[in-house]
Design a protein around this nucleic acid. Structure first.
Lengths: 137, 137
DNA sequence: ATGTTAATTGCAACTTAATTGCATTGTACT
DNA sequence: AGTACAATGCAATTAAGTTGCAATTAACAT
């Protein structure tokens, strides 16, 4: 049950290090975007000691390898999540900071309109909702 | 033809300084979000010498006064624009960095769905499109 | 098993956006 | 003109993220 991404990386000639496989595993098993620093903390908690620089470099690497993507949810730091998951967007609780996924049927209508209305060659978009989660209301 | 916002601020007992009125005027006469640093440059160009700290503090102040709002378009810096303009979103050119407004009819459908689907008490949302502008294509 | 090589890592220094403390300045009001 | 306190400049600080370089180590060959 080794991760596909890991397998692919290995086939491409990249090395499978403790940090790399742990980071991929954490991203795969977390259904929400994670920030570099919390990834670092999570690694620490499971006993993997790496420098924060390594976390940043690994995220940069996984971005280039098209395995993860940036999610700009907060003003102050970036989050990252696995690519290739069903298309969805995010809900961020403005009180506790909790993050959830949300998928919307009516999104494709919006995208169609955007393509029609604009002269830009639109490649991607970002959409996020901010409010209070049930617990914090 | 003095700005409404300026008038309101004065009535609230705030002072009208050169920096304050210039920043508000720049924001009012620019139909796209502006970053703190480019605001600083624009001020310089029109002969207004202020510290970048003042720009940040003024933006913070205008945010609290509910006159402007944050627009998180880029990973590296925040942009700001006047509040109260007709609801719209943004297009950012991934080549030249140009920013444009875009308004979408079908957006309310999306919002309705979001409200229905989610248990969150959604207060606001952010939506941006990324691609190449006509010039850069 | 051991050696080789280049990918990966740690460390320290650096960059950039943004914030803060404090002394000074200047707007608005008397 | 004089006063009060909002606004400002300056320098130092914080926090996210990046970079150069030497040391380490995974993967492959012998």
């Amino acid at each position: 049950m080794k991760s596909d991404s890991l397998q692919t990386l290995k086939e491409k000639g990249h090395r499978i290090t403790q940090a790399r496989s742990a980071i991929i595993e954490l991203l795969e098993n977390t259904d929400r975007p994670i920030a570099a620093k919390s990834l670092y903390t999570m690694l620490e908690r499971i006993g993997i000691k790496v420098n924060i620089t390594t976390v940043y470099r690994e995220l940069e690497f996984l971005l280039q390898e098209n395995i993860i993507e940036k999610v700009p949810l907060k003003d102050t730091e970036l989050h990252y999540e696995m690519k290739g998951r069903p298309h969805h967007h995010h809900l961020l609780c403005t009180s506790c900071g909790n993050i959830e996924d949300i998928a919307l049927e009516s999104e494709h209508t919006l995208l169609e309109e955007a393509h029609t209305v604009s002269a830009y060659n639109i490649k991607r978009h970002s959409l996020a909702f901010y409010g209070q989660c049930p617990k914090c209301q």
